[in-house]
Amino acid sequence: NITNLCPFDEVFNATRFASVYAWNRKRISNCVADYSVLYNFAPFFAFKCYGVSPTKLNDLCFTNVYADSFVIRGNEVSQIAPGQTGNIADYNYKLPDDFTGCVIAWNSNKLDSKVGGNYNYLYRLFRKSNLKPFERDISTEIYQAGNKPCNGVAGFNCYFPLRSYGFRPTYGVGHQPYRVVVLSFELLHAPATVCGPKKST
């Protein structure tokens, strides 16, 4: 009989979020998941679920829940969905086509923008091939755009693969920082350890 609540607040209220190319993952297990707390949290810009209804989450049990978190621009949030393409979905964070879970995003301009620009948040701009679902690539190898080998030196046709967002408070909404948490639900042939409040007695 599990009684402790799942530590969703640790994920959602973290002081610093990860850059999207180096997205953070927390495994959540052996706890009671009260999703209504999240669902009623006012400032969400997006709360979209795939393969599961957000209002039914509290009735369900899962083997594991993974909480992935990172920061992207407002106009990139739409790429955090199954079957998407674009710089983020291709080179930074890719969801599987059969994704079961929820994508939760909110504007973090007050936290993550600075006058003069916040350059701490990076994304991958160049990559030889697209990421596989949930693949994480933190390499900083110089990207070779031409035929000539770069030998690890940036220059003509040789690019550092990461780019900084440089968030400023005055940017338009599409270019403002958004914090994103992706909850993915794993249902294995194993005992369920993460259940909603109704199922955990």
Results as ranks from 00 to 15, higher is better:
18 A>C: 08
100 T>M: 13
101 G>V: 03
115 V>N: 11
102 C>M: 07
197 P>L: 15
92 N>P: 01
48 K>C: 05
85 T>C: 08
190 A>E: 14
82 P>W: 02
156 F>H: 09
2 I>E: 14
159 Y>R: 02
200 S>Q: 14
167 F>H: 00
49 C>K: 03
38 L>K: 04
8 F>R: 03
149 P>I: 08
94 K>C: 05
186 E>I: 07
164 S>C: 05
106 W>G: 02
153 V>K: 15
5 L>G: 10
132 K>C: 07
122 L>M: 15
170 T>M: 06
91 Y>F: 14
37 V>K: 15
35 Y>E: 07
36 S>H: 10
110 K>H: 13
128 K>T: 12
41 F>I: 11
30 N>T: 08
151 N>T: 10
72 I>R: 01
63 T>I: 09
29 S>T: 14
185 F>V: 07
113 S>R: 01
15 T>Q: 11
14 A>P: 06
98 D>M: 08
153 V>D: 12
87 N>F: 15
45 F>V: 14
185 F>Y: 09
200 S>H: 14
22 A>V: 06
183 L>E: 00
181 V>G: 01
85 T>S: 15
24 N>C: 08
4 N>E: 14
61 C>Q: 12
164 S>L: 04
95 L>N: 01
201 T>C: 13
144 Q>D: 08
98 D>Y: 09
8 F>N: 04
161 P>M: 03
160 F>P: 10
175 H>Q: 04
189 H>M: 11
124 R>G: 00
118 N>Q: 09
1 N>I: 09
174 G>A: 10
127 R>N: 04
29 S>H: 14
11 V>Y: 06
13 N>R: 09
65 V>Q: 05
107 N>P: 07
7 P>L: 08
188 L>D: 15
193 T>K: 13
92 N>T: 01
195 C>L: 12
27 R>M: 10
28 I>R: 04
78 S>Y: 10
74 G>V: 01
59 D>Y: 10
19 S>Q: 05
61 C>V: 10
98 D>H: 12
88 I>D: 00
158 C>E: 00
128 K>W: 07
1 N>Q: 12
138 I>C: 11
75 N>P: 05
192 A>G: 13
128 K>P: 15
176 Q>C: 02
158 C>D: 00
188 L>P: 11
91 Y>E: 01
138 I>R: 10
199 K>M: 14
57 L>F: 08
37 V>A: 14
4 N>I: 08
100 T>L: 14
59 D>C: 07
159 Y>P: 01
49 C>A: 02
51 G>L: 05
76 E>W: 03
112 D>Y: 03
57 L>Y: 06
81 A>R: 08
154 A>Q: 14
158 C>M: 02
146 G>W: 05
148 K>W: 10
150 C>H: 01
172 G>T: 00
41 F>K: 13
42 A>M: 12
20 V>Q: 00
66 Y>L: 09
66 Y>F: 12
148 K>L: 12
43 P>M: 06
49 C>E: 00
140 T>Q: 06
181 V>M: 06
82 P>Y: 01
172 G>R: 01
43 P>R: 09
42 A>C: 06
9 D>N: 13
128 K>Q: 12
105 A>C: 09
173 V>S: 11
197 P>V: 15
193 T>W: 11
56 K>S: 14
87 N>W: 15
130 N>Y: 10
189 H>G: 15
163 R>S: 15
76 E>T: 05
46 A>Q: 15
27 R>D: 10
63 T>F: 07
72 I>H: 01
93 Y>L: 02
58 N>R: 11
44 F>Q: 12
132 K>T: 11
21 Y>E: 02
147 N>C: 07
20 V>N: 03
60 L>G: 08
193 T>H: 12
56 K>F: 07
168 R>H: 05
106 W>F: 11
11 V>K: 03
154 A>E: 15
91 Y>A: 08
158 C>Y: 03
185 F>L: 08
80 I>W: 01
155 G>E: 06
50 Y>K: 02
43 P>L: 06
120 N>C: 06
81 A>C: 05
118 N>A: 07
67 A>F: 07
63 T>Y: 10
29 S>W: 08
68 D>A: 03
97 D>S: 13
173 V>H: 12
127 R>L: 02
188 L>R: 15
188 L>T: 15
25 R>D: 00
139 S>V: 06
94 K>H: 10
180 V>Y: 01
21 Y>W: 09
84 Q>H: 09
201 T>L: 14
45 F>I: 11
176 Q>Y: 02
191 P>E: 14
83 G>E: 08
182 V>E: 00
103 V>Q: 00
29 S>R: 11
199 K>Q: 14
137 D>I: 04
135 E>G: 09
151 N>V: 10
184 S>L: 08
17 F>M: 07
11 V>T: 05
184 S>N: 11
128 K>E: 13
176 Q>H: 04
77 V>G: 02
34 D>C: 07
100 T>A: 08
122 L>G: 13
63 T>E: 14
147 N>I: 06
99 F>M: 05
56 K>E: 14
100 T>Y: 14
60 L>Y: 15
71 V>I: 10
74 G>E: 05
59 D>E: 15
159 Y>C: 00
3 T>V: 10
116 G>N: 11
173 V>Q: 14
138 I>V: 15
142 I>T: 08
92 N>K: 03
31 C>Q: 07
186 E>T: 11
144 Q>W: 05
154 A>F: 04
160 F>Y: 14
15 T>I: 09
183 L>H: 01
162 L>D: 00
179 R>T: 00
43 P>F: 08
26 K>A: 08
136 R>H: 08
130 N>H: 14
201 T>A: 14
174 G>K: 08
156 F>M: 06
38 L>F: 09
130 N>G: 11
125 L>N: 05
34 D>Y: 05
47 F>Y: 09
37 V>R: 15
20 V>F: 02
59 D>L: 07
195 C>I: 12
190 A>K: 14
43 P>D: 10
192 A>L: 13
166 G>I: 03
83 G>N: 11
63 T>M: 09
52 V>Y: 09
26 K>R: 15
47 F>T: 09
165 Y>Q: 03
98 D>F: 08
165 Y>A: 04
52 V>G: 04
95 L>A: 02
25 R>S: 04
5 L>R: 14
120 N>R: 11
53 S>H: 12
42 A>F: 11
11 V>P: 03
124 R>S: 00
11 V>F: 07
108 S>P: 00
42 A>S: 10
162 L>I: 15
86 G>Y: 02
26 K>W: 07
178 Y>W: 10
49 C>V: 02
70 F>L: 03
71 V>M: 04
127 R>F: 01
58 N>G: 12
169 P>N: 06
81 A>L: 05
4 N>G: 12
39 Y>R: 15
187 L>F: 11
21 Y>K: 02
180 V>H: 01
81 A>H: 05
44 F>S: 13
74 G>I: 01
130 N>Q: 14
61 C>Y: 07
112 D>P: 01
145 A>Y: 02
131 L>N: 04
95 L>T: 04
28 I>L: 14
127 R>V: 01
184 S>T: 15
150 C>L: 00
200 S>A: 14
11 V>D: 03
105 A>I: 09
189 H>T: 15
35 Y>I: 13
191 P>Y: 10
137 D>L: 03
11 V>L: 08
